[in-house]
Amino acid sequence: MRSIAKIVGFFAGSLLLVSLLIFSIIHLTPGDIAEIHNLSPGTAHQLYLDRPLPAQYFLWLKGCLGFDFGISMVNGAKVSSQIAEYAPPTLLLTFGSLFLSLMVAIPLGVYRGLRPVSPLGKFISLGIYTLSSIPVFVLGYIVLAVVFGVFRFYVTTPPDGPFQFWPYISYYSLPIFVLAVGNGTIGEFVRFISLEVQNVNSAMFIKAARARGSRLWKHFFRSMVLPIFNIIVTNMAVLLGGLVVVERIFNFHGLGWLSWEATLKRDFSVIMGITLVMAFLIRVFMLANDLLAVWLDPRMRE
């Protein structure tokens, strides 16, 4: 119980630190925000820009706790409603590509871990090294070129209305594919999983289980759950970062695209809101990881 309280406390504390970091990057750098955007005193007041900095921070933080990130400095729309509008496709994209990369990486990683020196294992290594080094935007072009060259069209408008299989598939499949394969996500997964499989495979208790003639997969499975979840969590940040590029290439309207646009327009409140939401998402995953570790690993329960 003590350890769980500690973990939750750390979660809250680190989120606070993150918010402080974001706030200070935006507000402590030279340049007056109200001047940049030529804001009217009313808008500036609405954004608390006329208060001293600590007060600004606490007011902003208070708003954030209630999912209110202020208003856009460019068009005055509520940031939270923008995020709420753009988040669902992004979440679908993120989890879709996470799922895809795991589906590909787990079999490859397990195979490579069990037979690291076999020809296929070496081929897998070479393949993932090469894939990891293709930037997302280049890969996006390659994929677009191939798809466009073969099918002669590509859909760029989000499907509307009730769920229909083909429109959804054709809209989401390419971004999901590029986000999963590019970005080094699959490569990282394969490398990590195979290393972990190698470690477990050479562990003494697997040898002992083998000597008892007992089924090994049970022991393997239990020891692999935590590492796999761990690598997912570590890669969440990379995945969310890749969103910006993928959504830009495919003109996919999600959080990444929104943050790109906000940066172009220097829309501070939007970018702060998005960053905080993403950090929150990552932190939730980290929290889940820590709790899972306490739940599954008896050594962590102390």
Binding site: G31, A237, L243, T263, F268, T275, M286
Partner: peptide, 19 residues
């Protein structure tokens, strides 16, 4: 852990936005 809980590219965008 503070740094790791921010997506790299997004953090860079924040800085670009500010400067």
């Amino acid at each position: 852990s503070t740094i790791l809980s921010l997506p790299r590219l997004v953090l860079i965008l924040v800085v670009i936005c500010a400067l």
